[in-house]
Design a protein around this nucleic acid. Structure first.
Length: 504
RNA sequence: GUCUUGUUAGCUCAGCUGGUAGAGCACGUCACUUUUAAUGAUGUGGCCGAUGGUUCGAAUCCAUCACAGGACACCA
């Protein structure tokens, strides 16, 4: 039941006492005329003044009370707004008769949002503060804040009640400010290159564009199911067919899979498609993009990430097959022989799913022996065609595709390729995926005949790329769980009986 | 999905081999007009995650479940 907690009860009584005194505990007429950081900057000259004060200046600031120190007839409190923290000096004799003793000391407390007017001065301890001459309550908090020193550290509380985390941990706010900047810079970078931002459907009749299981939702008036999109790829390519030559979309994808430190059911990506370009051009623009981000976010080229230091001037390129031997340490005679790969994987105590083709086995070798070793930014190129159902074949080596994935800190950050625009080849590859689906691979692509129709009208040679924004932000903010870069990460419901279940 | 660790006051945490539950902060009362997690005195505050079991007796031992963290498996 709401409000049953005894501390909350106590505070609700204070709300009633305030109302009885004619004070609105949820006032709506804020008169703030500066932020805390501006106040601190504008008044930084006070400490050089003779009395360390200037009673002719007057400012009104607002914020949440974070610390409350009563010392008889005077008090120090600290209030915090989005910009920073400020100390306020409150004395009985500078406030209306009786206010200090009966209202300020009794009914105002940590967590309340207040508005204070007064003049700047520097305390004996040397802290620039505000000498209060007018004190107003703006919003009463009836729930007590967590402990002032340790704050809230319980991850479950931090994720489920993110607002509390944000109140108590100012560095969390910084992470999300950085995230916002990354998205805004990404948008500006591509716009400046002439890309058009577009929005394509989130509800798909066929979930395509990636190997993943979709969420299903239902359209009542049509009486049909729809899939939450797993990727915008096939729609963006239809736009290239339609004549747009450079498009991008920054938004959510949904995948019906497990959750862990690097997976949330909904995640943000940018996908961009660029006509008359190849994956080689994408490598160039990707390097440029990182340079742009690092420049505008003022990040060091030698970026610390956990125990690692990543050198963002050391971008390298290596074909996948080559990486298996030079980085993965797999013998050269093994990597192109299906039977030898199976033998090798088994010798390393790895289970091999039956029925895998050569390309899939090479992918397995890469995942097992190479991926985690790619710390500095590495473009792995030339992917086997079997694991790249939407990518264009190399003109000289038809068994591989013009594709790369970018790895940083042992993790995939981007996936890109010259797009397959041969409608018949695309049709055959979809059919291959359908066979895999029949054989039990529930993440294989489905046939999308409308997309084949689109390609039949001719899509200019095009290169396309997707970048996982969440993982990119993790990297740039030195966070190691995707939940720490999502404001409201997916959590299981606390009480099963409060949610609908289709089990009965 | 598997393994593993955790869940005790609003928050941060103690609680040993089973014997009626503890601290700090917060909150209440008192003192204090330059403090820095202010200080001193004093008091209130608990369905020990849930359900079963073992036992004369369970926060503690056992089982099941829920949620969370970590690792592995799969994926981006």
């Amino acid at each position: 039941m709401a409000f049953e907690n005894k501390f909350i009860q106590q505070r609700i009584e204070k709300v009633e006492l305030l109302r009885a005194e004619g004070i609105n505990p949820y006032s709506n007429d804020s008169r703030r005329n500066t932020t805390i950081v501006k106040y601190l900057n504008v008044n930084s000259d006070i400490e050089n003044m003779q009395n360390k004060r200037d009673e002719n200046r007057n400012y009104t600031v607002s914020g949440r009370i974070k610390l409350f120190r009563i010392m008889g007839k005077a008090s120090f409190i600290k209030i915090e707004d989005e910009s920073g923290m400020l100390q306020i000096y409150v004395t009985r004799d500078n406030l209306p008769e009786g206010f200090y003793n009966s209202t300020f000391k009794k009914l105002i407390e940590i967590g309340d949002i207040v508005e204070i007017s007064g003049f700047p001065f520097v305390t004996g301890q040397g802290e620039l503060s505000l000498h209060c001459s007018e004190f107003r309550l703006l919003t009463k908090a009836i729930a007590p804040l967590p402990e002032k020193f340790h704050g809230v550290t319980d991850k479950e509380i931090r994720y489920r009640q993110r607002y509390l985390d944000l109140i108590m941990n100012s560095e969390v706010r910084k992470t999300f400010q950085t995230r916002s900047k990354v998205i805004s810079l990404t948008r500006r970078f591509f716009e400046d290159k002439g890309f058009l931002e577009v929005e394509t459907p989130m509800m798909h009749p066929i979930a395509g564009g990636a190997n993943a299981k979709p969420f299903v939702t239902h359209h009542n008036s049509l009486g049909i199911d729809r899939f939450l999109r797993i990727a915008p790829e096939l729609y963006l390519k239809r736009l290239i067919v339609g004549g747009f030559e450079a498009v991008f979309e920054i938004n959510r994808n949904f995948r019906n899979e497990g959750m862990d430190a690097t997976h949330n059911p909904e995640f943000t990506s940018i996908e961009f498609y660029w006509a008359y370009k190849t994956y080689k051009d994408l490598i160039k623009i990707t390097k440029e993009y990182f340079e742009y981000l690092f420049d505008h976010l003022r990040l060091p080229i030698m970026l610390p990430y956990g125990d690692l230091v990543i050198n963002f001037e050391n971008f390298t390129e290596i074909p996948l097959i080559e990486s298996l031997t030079t980085i993965g340490g797999v013998a050269a005679e093994v990597v192109n022989d299906k039977e030898k790969i199976i033998e090798y994987l088994k010798s390393q105590n790895l289970t091999v799913k039956p029925g895998m083709n050569l390309g899939q086995l090479q992918g397995e070798l890469f995942d097992e022996f190479v991926e985690e070793k790619l710390i500095d930014p590495t473009f792995i190129t030339e992917y086997p065609v079997e694991i790249s159902p939407l990518a264009r074949r190399s003109d000289t080596k038809p068994e591989i595709t013009e594709r790369f994935e970018l790895f940083i800190a042992g993790r995939e950050i981007a996936n890109a390729f010259s797009e397959l625009n041969d409608p018949i080849d695309q049709y055959e590859r979809f059919k291959g995926q359908c066979d895999a689906r029949e054989a039990g691979d529930d993440e294989a692509h489905e046939m999308d005949e409308d997309f084949i129709d689109a390609l039949s009208y001719g899509m200019a040679p095009t290169a396309g790329q997707g970048i996982g924004i969440d993982r990119l932000v993790m990297l740039l903010t030195n966070e190691h769980s995707i939940r720490d870069v999502l404001l409201f990460p997916a959590m299981k419901p606390l009480h099963r009986d409060e949610v609908h279940s289709d089990e009965e």
